[in-house]
Computed example of a mutant assay.
Amino acid sequence: MARIQFTDWTIPVAQVGSRPGQTKEIDQEFPAPEGIGDTIVGVKPGAPVHVAGQFDSIVDGLIFTGTLTAPVDAVCARCDVDLSRDFAEQVTAFFPYENKGEDLAAGKDDEETEIIAGEEESGDLYPLLDNGSFADIEPLIRDTFVTALPLQMLCRPDCKGLCPQCGADLNEEPAHVHDVVDPRFDALAALKAQLEQQEK
């Protein structure tokens, strides 16, 4: 029997798991676990993650379907401004009863189990604890956002970025330009000036 460790992510599901066909609605916030992204794009540990969905009981466990929404802190990849926005991801996850997770992962169950596993989008199994009495959604939250968050984010799709010469924000100064002289023409410019001086 899996050892129960009550945490901020432990959800009692004994009633919904009592028999197939039961449903338990979830609409609450959980703290974000550690390890989601980095300082460029990530979710701060402890930030509120909104979980909205439901657990549906089947013969071998529970299926959770819903939406996870987390506040993402990032830095624009073009203009380097700080960003803070909500990032939502739809999920479907299978929580098998104890001793079923290993059989499913090894493909040793019957045809019904194979169909259930095929319906589960990510392929990850999140075992229930204490004979199906509790579900721990911490791994689900972490896995969802670790795989779904983009490597880079933009403040807006048409972000113009920064001036490569002086670092000015081109979004605020769209007409910003620099007169750039190619140093390869310095000798010709000097010769031109010399010829103009001689003509005088």
Rank of each mutant, 00 (worst) to 15 (best):
D130G: 12
D73W: 03
E25S: 13
L68H: 05
G107P: 01
G17M: 09
H176G: 13
P157G: 05
H178N: 08
A135F: 00
F64Y: 09
G37K: 00
L129E: 02
G17Q: 02
C155T: 09
F134S: 10
G21C: 07
L62R: 02
E34N: 11
P157V: 14
V75H: 00
S18Q: 13
R19I: 13
V16F: 08
L129M: 07
Y97K: 14
V146L: 08
H178T: 12
I58P: 00
C155M: 05
V91M: 04
I26K: 05
L151S: 13
D60P: 02
S122N: 05
F55N: 06
D82K: 12
T39K: 07
L68K: 05
L195N: 07
F87Q: 08
A93V: 11
A175N: 10
K24H: 04
L154Y: 00
Q54C: 13
R142T: 13
L154Q: 01
N99P: 03
P12K: 05
P150S: 06
Q152I: 14
D143Q: 12
L68G: 04
M1G: 13
P127A: 11
R156Y: 00
Q90F: 08
E119A: 09
A88I: 12
E25F: 10
S122P: 06
Q198L: 15
A70M: 04
T39E: 12
A74P: 10
G132T: 09
L191A: 14
G101N: 08
C76G: 08
